[in-house]
Structures are given as structure tokens and as C-alpha cells.
Amino acid sequence: MKQGFFITFEGPEGAGKSTQARRLYERLQSIGYPTILTREPGGTRISELIRRILVDLRHTEMAPTTEILLFSAARAQLVSELIRPYLATGGIVVCDRYADSTFAYQGYGLGRDLEELRTITDIATGGLKPDLTLYLRIDVEVGLQRKRASRERIEPGSVQPPEWNRLDARDLAYHQRVAQGFNELMAQEPERWYALDADQPVDELAEQIWQVVMARLAQVMPLAAQ
């Protein structure tokens, strides 16, 4: 019997996924839901070490297959060490990106075979899929501009500017293919995805996300909300 509830955030660069994932996590905790927040790639000691390699702007020679396998290795560790065990306790996992990003970025973005990616992803995750995926939709160019601009200031509580990584630095056409890939993925599993407009005030978007999540949790974890 499946336990817990697995929520992921997806979207183009600069959509505000990390901010909204943290807000959701904090609000769920505040009303008594057992919840953890994690990210991809990363979330465990080993996965964070792999992340450093993946995002480093100096690693321009990285082959697409290497990129895919490193993302999958980080994901396998995260699922095994953190996500599955926490779901087994009946808790909620909020994750900033997950396997859908591999299909969008390496599949549609880099043109890699999607069936091959599904096989690799199934091995890495053991077939674990999110219960709900929140897609923050934003124009690709606007999102990239927002991310570049965010590097010019340090957010309160941060010790360094937001990351500008090796994937961010790819050309506009690549990011447009990624966004189209996300649209294709949503069309394939509409029952799992919920798209929201990310080009609006942060507080308004957070409230919309909250309403969506609470409606879903009311169906599967009603007692925790009392």
C-alpha cells in the first residue's frame, strides 16, 4: 500500500521553483503535516557532490550520455536514501525538480531517445513517480532574464547569489525545446500535472499553489489537516 505524498516542482529557468517549494514546505509543516524539502540534483551528501560536477560552467566537454547518467545517479541516491524512506513513514516529500526534468532537458532539449531515458529513469527511481507535479509556466526569455537579474543581488538569508549553471548557459533554442518538452509531458499525464502562471507576484502564486495542494491532500491525507 502506497504511503505518503510526493510533490514535485518543475518549470523553465527563472520560474521561481525553489522559492515556491520552500514556501509550500514551510506552510505544510506549520499546520502539522510531516514534510521534508529536497532538490534535484542533490538532497544527499553523494547527490550534492554529483551536482557540483553537473552544474560547473567549466565542464563544457561533458558528453550528453555522461550528463544523463550523472543526473540519474544523483536521483538514484536521493530516492533510495531520502525520498522512499520518508514516504514510507507516511510523510510528504516536496522536491525541487525530479525525473521530468531529465525528459525535458536531456530528452527534448538535447534530442536524446525518450524510451532510453525512461529505461534509465525507471532503474534510478524504481518506478517512483510524483503524486502531484506543479508546473510553473513562464516565457523562456523572461525566466532567463529573471535568473540573470537575481544574480545581481543576494536574497535575505542567502550567503551567495542564485546559481547560474552549465545548463542555464545553453542557447535560447535549447531552453525553448525544454519548455515545449514540458508541454508534451503534461499532455501525456494531465492527471498528475497542474500548471500555474509564474509571471505574477510571489505571494499570489504561493496562495494558488496552496489551494491546489490542499485540495489534493484533502482526498488522501485528510486527518493530518485537522
Rank of each mutant, 00 (worst) to 15 (best):
G43S: 06
R51N: 09
S101E: 04
A225R: 13
E189A: 14
Y174P: 10
V202N: 04
Y25D: 14
Y33H: 09
T8K: 02
A173C: 10
D131E: 07
G126E: 11
C95V: 03
V159N: 15
G32P: 07
V159A: 09
A215S: 12
E40D: 04
R148V: 14
F103T: 03
T60I: 11
S158Q: 15
V79E: 07
A124E: 00
G127I: 12
D122F: 10
R45M: 13
P41M: 05
L144F: 08
Q200H: 05
Q160H: 15
S30V: 09
E10L: 02
A179S: 15
G181D: 00
T38R: 04
E163A: 14
I7A: 07
G126K: 10
F6C: 08
G91L: 07
E61H: 15
D131W: 10
P85G: 01
V93Y: 06
G107L: 04
V202S: 12
Y174T: 08
P64V: 05
R151C: 15
I154C: 13
R39N: 05
A124T: 00
Y86W: 14
R177N: 08
A104S: 08
A124G: 05
R27N: 15
Y105S: 10
L128Y: 02
E189H: 11
I154S: 06
Q106A: 01
L217T: 06
I120G: 04
N165S: 14
D197I: 06
Q77N: 12
E48Q: 14
E184G: 12
T133W: 00
P130G: 01
R27G: 11
A15W: 02
L78W: 00
E115D: 11
L24M: 14
G126C: 07
K129H: 14
L205C: 09
T38P: 11
R216F: 04
L82D: 08
R27S: 13
R166A: 08
A224P: 07
C95T: 04
I36A: 05
L223P: 04
F5Y: 07
I36E: 05
E191M: 10
L185R: 06
R192T: 05
G111M: 08
G90F: 13
E81M: 01
M186H: 00
A88R: 13
R27V: 11
P41I: 00
F71M: 05
F71E: 01
L57P: 15
L37I: 13
T102I: 09
T35V: 12
A179I: 12
A15H: 02
T8A: 08
Q219H: 09
E191I: 07
D96G: 05
A21C: 06
N165I: 03
S18R: 11
G111H: 07
A74P: 03
G109C: 07
D56R: 11
I36M: 07
K17V: 05
D139C: 14
G127Y: 00
A169Y: 08
L136Y: 00
D100V: 08
P34G: 01
R170H: 15
I209A: 00
V212G: 06
R118S: 03
Q208G: 08
E184F: 11
L167Y: 02
K129V: 06
D96P: 02
D197C: 01
P34H: 03
F6I: 03
I92W: 02
R177S: 13
Y108E: 05
P41D: 03
M186V: 12
T8W: 00
G126D: 04
I120K: 06
P64W: 01
E13H: 12
G181L: 03
